[in-house]
Amino acid sequence: MKSLANEFFINMADGARRHQAANADQYELVVNGIRNESDLAQQVALVEQMMATGVDAIVIAPADSKGLLPVARRAAAQGIVVVNIDNRFDREILAGMDISIPFVGPDNRAGARKVGDVLAAELKAGDQVAIIGGNPGAFNAQQRQAGFEDAMRAADIEIVSVQAADWEQARAANVAAAILGENPELKALLCANDSMALGAVAAVRQSGRAGEVLIVGFDNISAANSLVQSGEMLATANQYGDQLAVFGIEYALEILASGQAPADRDTPVDVVKAGAGQ
């Protein structure tokens, strides 16, 4: 997984452990994560470690959509079933490799479009918004930005700034503070994950513009859900993080049992608004 400092991935790990405990006769589970969501070198080292121990399957949420592909290819060539979750590997590069790595996860662009549409309904044409994105090298970051842009374009809302905060709360707080300072007419911040949305909330509070600048996120971690219910955030997207690893594990087990040629599988993503609970 990516950063175990992020509640989303903690929930993912917990969901995987619960699944393994209920299916202990089917497989053994090793859970690994990196220090932060951009530590590509550590994630490569973890995959190599798993290869060296002779695992049968690796389910991976890659920190980078391109940078993890060489080691994933080596793992697949070794006969290990590799299943890609959360952040999709680069399709063009993958197509040029003589391997098959399925993606099991949500349509991030469609999910972000849903969240963006909820925000657009609260704004009017010509209003100004900004996007705080994740790691620019991550496909899910690119797709969520595209989904936000789709929604704003459809509503004729002006995007005055797009900046990356690499999925991190503290960095997002600094980015949001700068955007707020430069754009006094800003009406909303669209954040590509909830950790960054929490940073944006802190920046909006600090600026004295709470209630004036709307904030949306993506992931439905508990702190963000609480802010949605209290009204400090307008909405987030639930991609059922506690089940994402489970979806990948179950597919890996199917492939191991049947030898079937793997194909991508879509998983659900839904908008969470006030009153919608967890």
Rank of each mutant, 00 (worst) to 15 (best):
L186Q: 09
A192S: 15
A178H: 00
A164Q: 11
P184L: 00
N183H: 12
E182Y: 01
W167M: 11
S161P: 02
A192L: 09
A164S: 15
V160F: 10
L190P: 01
S195T: 04
V160C: 11
A178I: 03
S161Y: 10
S195W: 07
C191M: 10
A173Q: 12
A178Y: 02
L189Y: 08
A192N: 14
L190R: 05
S195P: 03
A170Y: 01
C191E: 12
R171C: 08
L180A: 03
L186S: 03
I159R: 03
G181L: 07
I179K: 02
N193P: 08
A164Y: 14
G181Y: 04
C191V: 08
N174F: 01
A173D: 07
A188G: 09
W167Q: 05
A192Y: 04
I159H: 05
D194V: 08
L189H: 03
A172M: 00
P184F: 00
E182N: 12
A177R: 01
Q163A: 14
N193M: 11
A176K: 06
V160R: 07
I159P: 07
A172G: 01
Q169R: 15
E168V: 13
A165K: 08
I159Y: 06
A188D: 04
K187T: 10
R171H: 03
L190Q: 05
D166W: 13
E185H: 12
V162Y: 14
L180G: 01
P184I: 00
P184N: 14
A192P: 04
N193W: 07
N193C: 10
W167E: 06
E168L: 14
A188P: 05
A164G: 14
D194E: 07
N174L: 03
W167R: 06
A192E: 14
W167L: 11
E185P: 10
L180Q: 01
V162K: 14
A192R: 03
N193L: 12
P184K: 09
A165E: 11
W167D: 05
I159Q: 09
A172H: 04
N174I: 01
I179F: 01
L186P: 10
A173T: 04
A178F: 00
V160L: 12
E185A: 15
N174S: 10
W167P: 00
E185F: 11
A172I: 02
L189A: 03
L180N: 07
A165S: 11
E185R: 15
Q169V: 02
K187H: 06
E182P: 05
E185Y: 13
R171E: 08
N183G: 10
V162W: 13
A165G: 13
L186D: 07
L190D: 01
A192F: 04
G181P: 05
V160K: 13
A176Y: 05
E185D: 13
K187D: 06
K187E: 06
M196I: 09
L180Y: 02
A165P: 09
Q163I: 14
N174T: 07
E185C: 10
S195H: 06
E182D: 10
M196P: 00
L190F: 03
E168P: 07
E185G: 14
D194W: 13
R171G: 08
I159A: 05
Q163G: 13
S161L: 10
V175H: 02
D194L: 06
Q163C: 15
A177K: 00
V160I: 14
W167F: 09
R171V: 14
A178S: 11
W167V: 06
A173H: 01
L189K: 04
